[in-house]
């Protein structure tokens, strides 16, 4: 999924980030701290900012991309404000978790592992969360929803919008 990074909206952060990059220009090994700062400030690594880092620090893009994909804490996709996890453990699966996941995907217009453009929701498929007796289960952040039916989805999501 192509994620839009709004330069206008992040104007102030970008200015601050550029100052940070400036301060790192003549220090040894500036790439990791710069990526960490970008991840921190923007919540993910926007491609545009990686290009900026490449230009400012004179580090080839292929190298930056390699580093960014190596470490598990870097991400190219922002996580939404609310994380919807759908348990796909056996108990939930046999109780129709797959169709619930599909319902959530279609309502939010994104697929599992993605984030909505307004960054309000992201969806994740989870391994067994250990609540088999109340299957199927979905979690929104820390909140557990038990015996979820497809009809419940609209209402549940509305609480977080």
């Amino acid at each position: 999924m192509e994620f839009k990074f709004d330069k206008e909206e992040n104007k102030e952060q970008i200015v601050a980030f550029m100052e940070f990059l400036d301060s790192k220009k003549n220090t040894p090994g500036p790439l990791m701290p710069s990526l960490q700062r970008a991840q921190d400030v923007f919540g993910f690594l926007p491609k545009e900012m990686l290009e900026t880092i490449s230009k400012e620090l004179s580090i080839p893009m292929a190298e930056i991309y390699g580093v960014a994909t190596f470490y598990s804490q870097f991400s190219f996709v922002p996580t939404g404000k609310n994380k919807v996890s759908v348990c796909l453990g056996t108990a939930c699966y046999v109780k129709g978790a797959q169709s619930i996941l599909e319902e959530i995907e279609s309502q939010l217009g994104i697929e599992s592992g993605e984030t909505t453009v307004d960054e309000v929701f992201s969806i994740a498929a989870a391994r067994c969360v250990g609540d088999c007796s109340i299957a199927p289960v979905i979690l929104v952040n820390e909140d557990v929803y038990a015996k979820v039916k497809k009809e419940d989805i609209t209402e549940i999501l509305a609480k977080y919008n």
Partner: peptide, 27 residues
């Protein structure tokens, strides 16, 4: 030229251009 590099790690490691955009769109 640094057009290609490694992506991901472990068993998922891949030789790739940045963002998998293809050689044509790389340096």
């Amino acid at each position: 030229t640094n057009a290609i590099g490694f992506e991901n790690r472990g068993f998922e490691t891949l030789v790739a251009t940045p963002f998998g955009e293809g050689l044509e769109n790389s340096t």
